[in-house]
Design a protein around this nucleic acid. Structure first.
Lengths: 149, 149
DNA sequence: GTCACTGCAAAAGGTTTGCAACGGA
DNA sequence: TCCGTTGCAAACCTTTTGCAGTGAC
C-alpha cells in the first residue's frame, strides 16, 4: 500500500473555497447574506490560523454574534478546521469537509492541508493491541516549511 | 521495525503518579504544600478528562488561583495532558512527561495513554513528500473501549 | 527568617444569548 | 410575505492578576 498516494496536499484557493461554501450553504437551505459573505472574505485573507476574536477584529461592520455564529457553522460543517498549536493557542483555518490532516509551520504559522489518511495501517495495529474499536483520530504535524527551515 | 513494540499502554496508578509528581516537584525546587497535594488527589480521582473549572469544583477548600496555577504547572511539565475531544470540549488527564498519545473512548470518556511513537515512519514519509522539516506531531485516537463497544 | 505559595476578590477576556429590526428567497 | 438572519447590548463563564497574609524548608 502506497501511503504517499493517499496523502495529497490540498490547496485552499480563496475563490474556489468561497464558491464551494456558498454552494454548500445553498444546498443546506442557508441564506447567502452580505454579512456572511464578508466573513468568508475575511477568512480567506488569513494565511495563518486565526481566533474568533481576530476574525471579528477584521470585520468592523459585522456584528460579533454574526461572526461567531458563522464561524461555528463553518467549523461544524468542516469548511473551517481547528488547529491545535503546540503548547500555544488554538486557531482556525479554511479547510474542506472530510478527513483532513494539518501540517503547521512552527515559525511562520503556514498550514498545509492533507486529504486522505496516512495512518490507517497504524490504526489497525493499535486496534489489535488494545481492545478498542477505533473510529477516528486527530493527527497534526509541526515543523518548518521550506521557506523557514 | 515492530511498531507494536514501540507503543505500550501506560497505566496511571494514583499512588505511583502522585509520588512521581511529588518527586518531580522536589527536584525542581518547588514546595510541596497541602493545597497542591489536594489538587493531585483530586486529579487522580477523575477517570475521564476534566476541565479546570471541574477540578476547582472538586476542591472547595482550595483557592481558584491555586487550582489553576497548579494545573498549569502540571500541564507544562507533562504530568497532565490536554485531550482534544472530537468536536467537543478539551479536557485534562493525568499523564507522564514525554512523548505520549491518547486513545479516548467516545462513549465513556476513558483514556488510554501510549508511550513511544507509532508514527515515526509516516513522519519520514511526509517529510519526503513536503518540503517541511517535521519536528513534532499530535496524535489522538477515538473509539470505543472494550466495555463500551 | 526568607521567600515561594496561597487565596481572596476584582479584572480581564472571550463567547453566548435575548430580542427587536431587517432582508433574502 | 415569511421566516431565517443580523446586531446590539447584556449576561455569562472561564481564566488571569494584584497583593497582603501564610507557611514550607
Amino acid at each position: 500500500m502506497n501511503e504517499s498516494a493517499q496523502s495529497q496536499p490540498v490547496a485552499v484557493r480563496p475563490d474556489v473555497w468561497t464558491a464551494a461554501v456558498r454552494r454548500a450553504w445553498q444546498s443546506a437551505g442557508l441564506r447567502i447574506t452580505e454579512p456572511r459573505e464578508r466573513v468568508l472574505a475575511a477568512i480567506v485573507r488569513f494565511r495563518t490560523p486565526f481566533s474568533a476574536e481576530q476574525l471579528y477584529a477584521e470585520l468592523p461592520e459585522t456584528g460579533r454574534a454574526t461572526v461567531y455564529r458563522t464561524l461555528e457553522q463553518l467549523h461544524t460543517t468542516g469548511w473551517v478546521a481547528r488547529i491545535h498549536a503546540q503548547g500555544g493557542e488554538d486557531g482556525y483555518v479554511a479547510s474542506y469537509p472530510g478527513h483532513m490532516h494539518h501540517l503547521v509551520c512552527t515559525n511562520c504559522g503556514a498550514v498545509v492541508i492533507f486529504e486522505g489518511c496516512v495512518v490507517d495501517a497504524l490504526v489497525d495495529e493499535l486496534a489489535r493491541q488494545t481492545s478498542f474499536a477505533i473510529e477516528g483520530h486527530l493527527l497534526q504535524l509541526y515543523g518548518r516549511c521550506e521557506r523557514c527551515r
